[in-house]
Design a protein around this nucleic acid. Sequence first.
DNA 1: GATTATGAACCGACCAGTTGGTAAAATAAA
DNA 2: TTTATTTTACCAACTGGTCGGTTCATAATC
Lengths: 208, 208
Amino acid sequence: MNRRFIPPSRKEGASQKLLNAALTLIRERGYASTSVDALCARAGVTKGAFFHHFKSKDDLAIAAVHYWSELTGAFFETAPYHGHTDPLDRILGYLDFRKSILTGEIAEFTCLAGTMLQEMYHTNPVIREVCAASIRGHAATLEPDIAQAMEQYRIQVPWTAESLSLHMQAVLQGAFILAKASGGAAIAAESLDHLHRYIQLLFQPRGQ
Amino acid sequence: MNRRFIPPSRKEGASQKLLNAALTLIRERGYASTSVDALCARAGVTKGAFFHHFKSKDDLAIAAVHYWSELTGAFFETAPYHGHTDPLDRILGYLDFRKSILTGEIAEFTCLAGTMLQEMYHTNPVIREVCAASIRGHAATLEPDIAQAMEQYRIQVPWTAESLSLHMQAVLQGAFILAKASGGAAIAAESLDHLHRYIQLLFQPRGQ
DNA sequence: GATTATGAACCGACCAGTTGGTAAAATAAA
DNA sequence: TTTATTTTACCAACTGGTCGGTTCATAATC
């Protein structure tokens, strides 16, 4: 549940600019360390504008996660991997696509929801839930392809399409942490290779 | 790179109490949201004591990560999975062990280094490095078993023991995020099942 | 002329960190 | 063994600055 963030920079209102600033700053430094003043400065807006559009900092956070879900939803909806006729190719194509966008600054390809969850899962149930819904919602877009592949490849397995789709998100989230640890995306890409290999093995007919 | 945290509660000095408080509070709320006052209150110590033992909040953070590495190092060193004669059994036993400690509060089984990385990778290179070293160091304890299994099972693969050991940590870190999202460890456990299955498939002779 | 959007100045609470001190423990001198 | 001295461990009160949030005046827009 993440993606590259390309700041629109079109002529936009204060609330749009603040949302975009939030995506960048929160993914760089986390939520608590991102002050309202810093958000306003980044957005080129004053505090009056901030509290005109958002009733609190947490209110902006919630709006930012919704905005994030919309952006990523549209981004993956139009991605090329949906074009494959074989459902397994679509799944593997999704991973190739995820790997291909591991470029530029770390904050540009990591996940807002995952970052915010780490800080707020325990203290803010509302934000926890919108972040969870964002990740769950993205994982759900993979389920039909997985289910179709399971049927088409006639595999009998003890796991569900939902479970695998969530595991894929877990690997992505973990890969982001490795990227943050190492200061680069290379290790994250290797982890996606392992996941790619796992899914190939799962759907590959075995035992002669 | 994480584990259950059992507060020692022996008669200990202020710095020990502060380190233990840091492990709990930072994993619950993140670093930035954990104030020095909150740490002191949790440790039952005053601010004077805090700044007697640590020259800054960041200094405590670094000490806490080192403390974490020591605790987890000792914890996994004495874990039962090392007893298996087959190296693959040791690797899979490690995962079973990791799964078995996914109990109690989320903050008790999640990883301090992974949590802190999310907030500080971009702003504090020193802390980023000690967190990275903590995770890398733990992953490195798995490498000999993986290398031995690769040799013993005579598999020819395009990946290294290091790469797989880091992938295992990625899955764990990602599983923690899913646990934080869902409010429980169940999804995290399922992700570990997928990783378990992947490693079994990797070392299982195929194509015949 | 209302409603919506923005700005500058401000507020109390809380932040990390300092000060100046006390009590006990370790060390040294007698 | 007792006394003197230093060091370590700790504490309560405080400081300057930053935090999220408010106030109220002013633009722009319909």
